[in-house]
Amino acid sequence: MTTQENVRRVLDWAVAEIGVPGIVAEVKDGDQTWFASAGVADIRTGAARRPGEYLHTGSSGKAFTAAVLLSLEAEGRLSLEDTVNTRLPGVLGTNGYDGDKITIRHLLSNTGGLFPTGLAPEVSHRYATRSGILEHRFDTFTTEELLRIAVSQPPVGAPGDRFEYANGGFHLAGAIIEKITGNTYAEEVDRRVIQPLGLTHTRVRPLDDTGYPAPHPRAYSTLFLKDGADPSTVTPENWESLMEEPGQPPLDVTEFNTSLAWSAGNVVSTTGDMIHFVDSMVTGSLLPPAQHRQLWTTVSTEGSYWMPHARYGLGMFEFDKQATGGRTLRGVGGSLWGTWFLAVGTPDDQHTIAVHTNTEWKSWDLMFKLIEAEFGVAIGA
C-alpha cells in the first residue's frame, strides 16, 4: 500500500470512528505535492472539503509570535534573556508573579510558571457550555483584558522549572512586540513573516473579525461541559470527566470572535501556506542561524498535560527522538472551537504534511496515525 493510500485510510478512519465532520491533508514531498480529504465541509449541504480552504490554525500562531521576536533579536532590539519587567514594567506584579525573573525565553517556551490560561474563570464561564458559547461567541477581548487574565491565577511553578502550556505567556509576548516596535502585533507578523515568505493567503485575524474568506469549511464543536458542571472546578486532571457524553449533536461555531487567542494563536491560513511557513521554520530559511538555533533549543514536556512524546522549542514542537527512533520531526499544532490543525515536517528533505479538521482536537491517535502513515514513524512504539 502506498503512502497516499495509508494517509487516505487514516482520514476515512477519522470521519468514521472519532466523529470528525471533515478532514483534509496536504503533503509536500520534495517537488511533489498532493491533497486528500474525507467527510464534509458542511453538514447541512453535504459539500465536500476542497483544496485552498481558509482555516483557523489555532495555537500554530504561536510560531509566528516566536518568529517576530527572534527577528527583533537578530536586529539587536531585544534579547530572549530580557525580563518581562524590562519590557513591560509592572504587568507581572500580581498574584505571586515576578517580572524580574520571567524572561522572553520563558514566555515563548511555556516555562514561565504561568497557569493554563484557558482555566481562568473569565474564560471558562463564557465558553465551557453550549449556552455560554451562544451568549458569548462574539465577545471581543482587548490586549489589556488578555494581560489581566494571564496573571489572574497564581503561578504553577517557578520560572524555568517546568513546561506548562499557557496562552498568557504569548499574550505577554505579543504586548512586548507592540511595545518595542510601536506597531500592532498583526502589522509586525505581516512585515516579518507573511510578506517575506509570500504567504498570500495568511493573516492575523482582525480583532472584530468573526468569519472567513471563501472558500472555507463550516466549523463544528462538541467541546462542552456537562449540564450543571461548574467551570471553576475544572483542572488539568479532571476536565475529561466533566465533558459532555459522546454523541451530542455538534454546534456550528463558524461565526466566532477569536480575539481571545490573539498572539497565542489567531492566524487564518491555508494548508499550502502553512506548509511553506513550517518548511521555513524547520529548515532555517526564514531566521538567521543564531536565531534558528534558539528556536530549536527545546525543553521536555514530560509531566505536563500537553502533547505526549514531545519537546517544545519556541512556539513549535519537536517529537522526542526516543519516540521516533532517532528521526527529527518538527511542527506546529493547535485546536480551538471548531478547528484542529497540525503541520509536521523534516529538516533534511523538506517533507511536510498539513492536516485540518473542522472540529476541535479529538484524539492524539489521529496525529500519531497520520505521522506513521506519511513518515513511517510509529511515535512511542
Rank of each mutant, 00 (worst) to 15 (best):
E164W: 02
L172Y: 00
S241I: 02
S221I: 09
I194V: 15
P155Q: 11
T233A: 15
L172R: 03
Y220M: 10
E145L: 06
D208C: 01
N183A: 14
A229N: 05
S232E: 14
V189W: 04
P215V: 01
L207W: 02
F163I: 11
E164M: 09
Q248E: 09
L242Q: 14
D252C: 10
P246C: 09
F163L: 12
W239A: 13
V204K: 05
F224S: 11
V156M: 08
F163A: 11
S241W: 00
P236A: 12
Y220A: 04
E237W: 02
S221G: 07
V204G: 03
D161A: 15
G160K: 10
T233K: 14
K179M: 10
D161M: 09
D190L: 12
I176G: 08
S241K: 13
L225T: 12
D161T: 11
G168A: 08
F224V: 13
A158Y: 04
M243L: 15
N167S: 15
E164H: 11
V156D: 10
S221R: 04
I177T: 05
Y165D: 03
L147F: 01
I149D: 09
G182R: 09
D230M: 09
A175T: 05
Y220L: 09
I176F: 00
F170G: 06
G157V: 02
I177D: 03
A214C: 00
T202K: 06
D230K: 08
T202H: 04
V151K: 08
P249D: 10
P250Y: 08
T233D: 11
P215F: 05
R203I: 00
S241F: 02
H171C: 05
N167F: 08
V234L: 12
D252Y: 03
H201S: 14
A175K: 02
A219M: 14
P215L: 07
D190W: 01
E164F: 05
A166G: 03
E164D: 13
R191S: 14
I194L: 01
A166S: 15
E245P: 04
T210Q: 13
D208W: 04
N238R: 08
R192L: 14
H171A: 04
E178N: 07
N238I: 09
E244N: 10
P215C: 06
W239R: 13
P231N: 12
L251S: 03
L225M: 08
P196V: 10
L207A: 05
D230C: 11
L147M: 08
N167L: 07
D161Y: 03
S241C: 01
G169V: 12
A186H: 02
